[in-house]
Design a protein around this nucleic acid. Structure first.
Length: 185
DNA sequence: ATGCAGATTGACT
DNA sequence: GTCAATCTGCATA
């Protein structure tokens, strides 16, 4: 399986968010392999998007959004959660990233269950902070190159069905943009 | 099924 | 000092 190319991420953030549906997130932890199909994403743009971390310009936290596409933007929020984004923007954009909100777990479910500290195999990675927990994604993955087969990357896989567009979740501004994308399996 | 409080820390005003 | 791109558990119906 091939990773998604740099060019894939070098397009308008909204387009990349749609096209990431159905792709596969891979996490290597020693000999263990965790994989999941991306089933929900959200696009966050730049100074034209009041819901984006990049809205007020570059800071130490959001600098990845202004950097090379195809890398990870991980941030810490609500005092206890990590969220995982793929940096994506076209050449004329200063910043942009796609929040991965939900995964359909594939391989390594028992390990995800252990990492999530839950008893059932339900709800392993159906939320932005749940999937980082299940996949062991933390700030140490800030800026990781997702086009290289390291311990966190995204490979091409075409499992995309229909796309449902909605307002983004958990934001106060920019609700009028339908930049949340979902697909059901 | 739906709703709300509480957790808990760091980034930014 | 404020509040966040959230989750869980417990309450009500």
């Amino acid at each position: 399986m091939k990773t998604l190319s740099r060019d894939f991420y070098s397009r308008d953030t909204v387009e990349v968010a749609k096209d990431l549906l159905g792709k596969t997130l891979v996490r290597k932890i020693g000999d263990n392999l965790l994989t999941g199909i991306i089933s929900e994403t959200e696009a966050y743009k730049q100074s034209d998007d009041p819901a984006s971390h990049a809205f007020r310009g570059i800071t130490d936290r959001n600098k990845a959004m202004f950097g090379e596409v195809g890398r990870a933007y991980v941030y810490f929020t609500y005092g206890m959660h990590y969220c995982f984004n793929a940096v994506a923007k076209s050449d004329d954009m200063a910043a942009g990233a796609v929040l991965i909100r939900s995964l359909e777990p594939l391989e390594g479910k028992s390990i995800m269950k252990r990492k999530r500290k839950i008893k059932k195999l339900d709800n392993l990675s159906n939320g932005p902070a749940k999937l980082t927990q299940a996949f062991g994604i933390t700030k140490k993955h800030y800026g990781v190159d997702l086009t290289k087969k390291g311990d966190l990357f995204i490979i091409d896989s075409d499992n995309q069905n229909n796309i449902i567009e909605s307002p983004r979740i958990g934001i106060r501004n920019g609700v009028d943009n339908l930049w949340n994308f979902k697909t059901y399996y």
